[in-house]
């Protein structure tokens, strides 16, 4: 669909329209980090500018999976029944491509198997994704190594690029087109010069990433990882500083593991789902007490094999988006690029 240009001066008017119809979240700069923040239509009207927008920053600290795959939610009850409720209609304004890759992984896991997750499906259906280019990748970014770009070309309803005096928006879906239509006259057709400027910015971002991460991984990572399965020295070296805090897994946009636990009250059972981490010692333990991954090293290897071997072999792409959150939060400074780079 044709790109449209929204001048900066008309942005808030359009955002106000969106925020009145949807719950809208945007990336806000708070100190040196970016966090998701809810935009209130009333605040816009009253001239309260709120926190600074961080559309040109790298991804927020929190992966957007939190919006769709809830960190904690009740999924069943017994003997009473529980069915998914209709979730609120949301717009995530300014999603980075690395987070979109996370959703692609979750769609494979939660929607494309034998069983659809109705909670995830309902939230995804009611969520509009407006992607924003990532013009200034940081040293921790490595989406180029996993075959991605610092801008989206699919998986969102609209792709937005910030230009000097406004925004270039390219709707990818009918829903995205509808949102642009809401803005009416505020939008003008994107000019060739604007498109060229966007492409220039994108090219510069790609070049910056290639400078940060110049050496591509072994194209046969999945195979190389399989061959290294029993190379204890290799894995021990990389796992040495891990303190098993599993911050890497909680901040990962692609991790999908969850734990089902029951809250039992007399004869009733409430079944709740929370995010889980495959680094936890009891993660794979069975009822009788046996544990196939009792040693931490096995759990460490399993995490890498899950993302780069099993998922790649089964779905054709890595369950890693190159967002860099895992080593930004890592107390042991384990850089996933280094592990993969040595394969």
């Amino acid at each position: 669909m044709e790109p449209r240009f929204l001048p900066s001066t008309k942005r808030d008017n359009w955002l106000g329209q969106l925020a009145r119809e949807y719950t809208l979240f945007f990336p806000a700069r708070v100190e040196k980090k970016v966090h998701w923040h809810r935009l209130e239509a009333e605040d816009l009207e009253s001239g309260d500018s709120g926190p600074e927008w961080g559309l040109c920053c790298i991804r927020a600290s929190e992966p957007i999976k939190s919006f769709l795959f809830s960190p904690r939610e009740q999924v069943a009850s017994f003997p009473d029944r529980l069915e998914p409720e209709e979730p609120e209609k949301r717009i995530l304004f300014g999603v980075k491509d690395c987070d979109l890759l996370g959703l692609k992984v979750h769609e494979k896991m939660f929607l494309e198997g034998d069983f659809k997750d109705p909670f995830y499906e309902a939230r995804l259906k009611n969520t509009i994704l407006i992607a924003a280019d990532c013009p200034d990748p940081e040293d921790s970014c490595f989406c180029n190594l996993v075959g991605r770009k610092p801008y989206a070309t699919e998986g969102a309803d609209i792709v937005l690029s910030v230009l000097d005096n406004g925004y270039l928006l390219e709707p990818l879906t009918e829903q995205g087109e509808e949102l642009v239509r809401l803005g009416g006259d505020a939008f003008q057709p994107g000019t060739e010069a604007q498109i060229a400027r966007r492409d220039e910015q994108r090219k510069a971002a790609v070049e910056k990433l290639e400078k940060t991460n110049p050496k591509p991984w072994n194209p046969e990572v999945a195979k190389a990882m399989e061959d290294r399965t029993k190379d204890q020295a290799f894995w021990r070296k990389h796992a040495a500083t891990c303190v098993e805090c599993f911050g890497c897994l909680m901040s990962c946009p692609t991790c999908f593991c969850f734990l089902l636990y029951a809250k039992a009250k007399e004869a009733k059972v409430e079944r709740t789902r929370i995010w889980d981490a495959c680094y936890l010692a009891a993660y794979a333990r069975v009822g009788g007490g046996a544990n196939p991954r009792a040693e931490f090293l096995k759990r460490f290897i399993n995490r890498f094999q899950c993302k780069f071997m099993h998922f790649k072999n089964q779905h054709g792409f890595y369950a890693c988006s190159g967002c860099g959150r895992c080593f930004k939060v890592c107390m042991g400074k384990i850089d996933i690029r280094k592990v993969l780079g040595e394969l």
Binding site: L260, A284, H310
Partner: peptide
């Protein structure tokens, strides 16, 4: 095969056995 089959849907990850989810 005996693994920790929890969700039964091939999603939660607990029953991973090599490339397989044993529940699926």
């Amino acid at each position: 095969m005996e693994t920790n089959m929890s969700c039964g849907l091939g999603q939660c990850g607990h029953c991973r056995l090599g490339p397989y989810f044993t529940c699926k």
